[in-house]
Design a protein around this nucleic acid. Structure first.
Length: 194
DNA sequence: ATACCGATTAACT
DNA sequence: GTTAATCGGTATA
C-alpha cells in the first residue's frame, strides 16, 4: 500500500495518466469511516484546448480555478444539482488538466458504502455520481491534496490484465464537437484486475 | 436580477 | 426510450 507520489500527477500527458489510474485505489478516511475502491473507468480532460473541458479556452472561474492547481489536487463539482463528480487534477500548476473517475470496484468499507448509497453497493460502482456517493466525496472536498487526505489514491499492486483496456469516446460531451470523438475514455472490467 | 442548462441517475413506460 | 430531480455556474441585461 503506497500513496501515489506527486510525480505521478505532475506528468504532462493527461491521457496516459487516465489510463495509468486504472487499477489504482481511491481511499477515503472520514470520521473513522474508511472506504476504498479500485478504479475501473476514467476520462481525460485535456485543458484549454479541449472543448469538453470546463477549462476550455482558458476559462477561469471560482469553480474551475482548482483545475489550475498542481497535479494531485481534487476537483469535485456538482452536476445537475445532485451529483458530486470527482476529478483528479494533473500536470503542473497553471495547466488545467484533469481525470474524471467514472467507475470503481469496492474493496473496503462495503457496509459504509451501502449506507451512503441506500442500497447494496454490489461489486461494481458504475457512474461518476455513484462512485463519489459511495466513497463519501462531496464538493466540499474540492481543492483537497490527494497526498494528504481525507482522499488519497494508492497503488496496492493490482495489475490490469494485458489487453483488457478499452478506449473510446467520452460520455455526455456531445456538445464538444469534434473533441467529443477523441478516445479519452478508458475502462476495464473488475475481473481484469489481478 | 433573471434565465438557461449540465462531464447524471434511477425510476419509470 | 423517456423523464423528473435539483442547484450552482455562466451568460445576458
Amino acid at each position: 500500500m503506497s500513496t501515489l507520489p506527486r510525480s505521478f500527477y505532475l506528468g504532462h500527458d493527461v491521457v496516459r495518466i487516465a489510463r495509468d489510474l486504472l487499477g489504482k485505489v481511491v481511499v477515503t478516511r472520514m470520521q473513522d469511516e474508511v472506504t476504498a475502491a479500485a478504479i475501473t473507468e476514467t476520462e481525460a480532460y485535456a485543458g484549454e484546448l479541449d472543448r469538453a473541458s470546463h477549462a476550455h479556452g482558458g476559462r477561469r472561474t471560482a469553480r474551475t480555478e482548482v483545475m489550475y492547481a498542481r497535479g494531485g489536487t481534487a476537483y469535485v463539482y456538482l452536476c445537475y444539482g445532485i451529483h458530486h463528480l470527482f476529478n483528479v487534477v494533473t500536470n503542473e500548476h497553471g495547466t488545467p488538466h484533469a481525470v474524471l473517475i467514472r467507475a470503481a470496484m469496492p474493496l473496503e468499507g462495503m457496509v459504509v458504502m451501502n449506507t451512503r448509497l441506500g442500497r447494496e453497493a454490489g461489486h461494481w460502482l458504475k457512474g461518476p455520481g455513484v462512485v463519489s456517493k459511495a466513497l463519501g466525496i462531496r464538493t466540499a472536498h474540492t481543492g483537497a491534496d490527494l497526498l494528504k487526505g481525507p482522499i488519497t489514491i494508492e497503488d496496492r499492486g493490482l495489475r490490469v490484465a494485458r489487453g483488457a483496456i478499452i478506449a473510446g469516446p467520452r460520455i455526455g460531451v456531445d456538445f464538444a464537437g469534434p473533441d467529443a470523438l477523441l478516445p479519452y475514455r478508458f475502462h476495464i472490467r473488475p475481473s481484469d484486475l489481478r
